[in-house]
Amino acid sequence: MDFIFGHYNYWIVIILMMAGFYTVISRGNLIKKITGLNIFQTSVFLLYISIGNVEGGTTPIIAEGVEQYSNPLPHVLILTAIVVGVATTALGLALVVRIREEYGTIEEEDIHKQDESL
């Protein structure tokens, strides 16, 4: 039991990761795919933040009477990864806009049909 509840944040990570990954694979709507990708990436952010947590540690700001700090490095790393994620989402959405301008649809199947009919 302790194994299940003691690692609850990791379970959330796994659930989010699989939900996002499944959405990317299963959905035909291009926006939904990007959303899935976002959830997938977010789960990794949570993973990093969980890794950085030290049991009994506080926020890594020097204060009197505190000796245990959480590891701030994974948090900083994930800031970078969040920026990358935002850039990816922005580029992905921009592409969807352009695809809609050219094809008039954002459903994968319709796009395939249009490409094949040429």
Binding site: F21, K33, L37, F40, Q41, T88, G92, L95, I99, D115
Partner: peptide
Amino acid sequence: ALTASYQYLIMGTI
């Protein structure tokens, strides 16, 4: 080219 790029974006990001 747009759909090719989109496809690459999804797979590349994964």
